[in-house]
């Protein structure tokens, strides 16, 4: 057993390529086979993530953003989930074809995740320090006391006051914001190269949200992690992301650098969303509402999935699925991307 409490990471088998690319999701499909039919949750999603980069995945409920994250982490329940095709390459190695024990070793030290609801993601019957320490016991073979020492170090890092005294407290003894900090401590415990944050602040109040986002930004800067931020909050994305992918009905419909996405949206859905949210810094604003509802994934409309709600839709939109294509410094999956852009 190691005598030092310092956490020494074993040399990684994984090296990002020369461009610093860590993760590459390539034409991924995910389906859920349910009694009501096949729900096509993800329909050909591709993106990549580089070191030190924050990629936001924006979407409403049912758009497939969380399923994408779960597919990357390898925590989808299969069945009912099925991955008919696609690849998720981490440093060039396909996670989907990798043997399970190898993938398990990567989950934590290489890629880790922060879940939305900290209360239901933490085990209520174990002290938080035990749960954070589990990462070190499982992956580094540490003994109990060393693992606890590591847990204290991490709890201090995520600014939990009185970490030493609270390491043996149970999750219910912490507030929502503190629980989310504990989740973050667990996620960064083994210095992952990729961190996925699935709606990390949705359940929190704004003042606490600001604290958590500031902490995440700081940790990312310090460790040069690639961060995938999954959210529906356009405000949070504008504040922290470098790039964003907008998802609708299991596809990426728009992908752009953050400034282009907000200033020059090239997809009617993105544009509609931006015009439909009230802004704190504007008064007398008219809200333009997108009609209708996001589609049911068991019966996605033919052609462009957004066509029944799109005010620009033409005949071609009802028959042909638009490919994600490059238009003026960004990607848009709209037959009329140029018109949207110049309109």
């Amino acid at each position: 057993m190691t005598t030092t409490t310092k956490s020494v990471a074993p040399a990684s088998d994984y090296k990002p390529d020369d461009s610093g690319r860590l993760l590459e999701v390539d034409n991924l499909f995910v389906e859920f086979h349910t009694a009501e039919g096949v729900a096509k949750a993800i329909n050909g999603v591709s993106f990549d993530l580089h070191q030190g980069e924050t990629l936001a995945i924006l979407g409403e409920s049912g758009s497939g953003k969380s399923v994408t994250a779960q597919a990357i982490m390898g925590i989808l329940d299969m069945p009912p989930a099925v991955i008919p095709s696609g690849a998720i390459r981490y440093c060039g190695q396909d996670l989907l074809t990798m043997p399970e024990d190898q993938r398990r070793r990567a989950r934590g030290p290489e890629i880790s995740m922060i879940f939305q609801d900290a209360l239901s993601s933490l085990n209520p019957t174990f002290p938080v320090g035990w749960q954070i320490g589990e990462m070190f016991r499982q992956h580094r073979g540490m003994n109990k006391s060393d693992a606890y020492a590591q847990a204290v170090r991490l709890m201090e890092r995520v600014a939990i006051p009185g970490a030493k005294d609270r390491v043996k407290n149970y999750p219910h003894q912490f507030s929502g914001g503190m629980r989310q900090r504990i989740m973050i401590a667990m996620a960064i415990a083994l210095d992952p190269a990729v961190l996925i944050a699935d709606e990390p602040t949705t359940a929190l109040d704004v003042t606490v949200q600001a604290q958590i986002m500031a902490l995440l930004a700081e940790l990312q800067e310090e460790r040069q992690m690639g961060l995938i931020l999954i959210t529906h909050d356009l405000g949070v994305v504008a504040d922290v992301a470098d790039r964003a992918s907008v998802m609708y009905a299991g596809r990426i419909v728009a992908q752009a650098g953050i400034e282009d996405l907000y200033a020059r949206p090239a997809h009617p859905y993105t544009r509609g969303l931006l015009e439909s949210i009230p802004r704190l810094d504007q008064k007398g604003q008219t809200l333009a509402a997108i009609g209708g509802l996001p589609p049911n994934l068991t019966r996605i409309p033919p052609g462009c999935a957004f066509n029944p709600r799109c005010r620009m839709a033409q005949d071609i939109c009802r028959t042909d699925v638009p490919e994600l294509r490059h238009v003026a410094n960004q990607d848009s999956a709209c037959h009329f991307a140029e018109e949207v852009l110049n309109g």
């Binding site: 015009e275 810094d281 008064k283 007398g284 008219t286 997108i290 009609g291 209708g292 029944p308 620009m312």
Partner: peptide, 28 residues
């Protein structure tokens, strides 16, 4: 917050509607 008064700005209604949306236009 620096506030911008946008009460005179016309909303581009090609992308979304400023009216109350009639849901049945979309009901399938």
């Amino acid at each position: 917050v620096e506030t911008v008064d946008v009460s005179d700005v016309e909303v581009d209604t090609r992308f979304a509607s400023t009216d109350v949306v009639d849901l049945d236009a979309f009901a399938e």
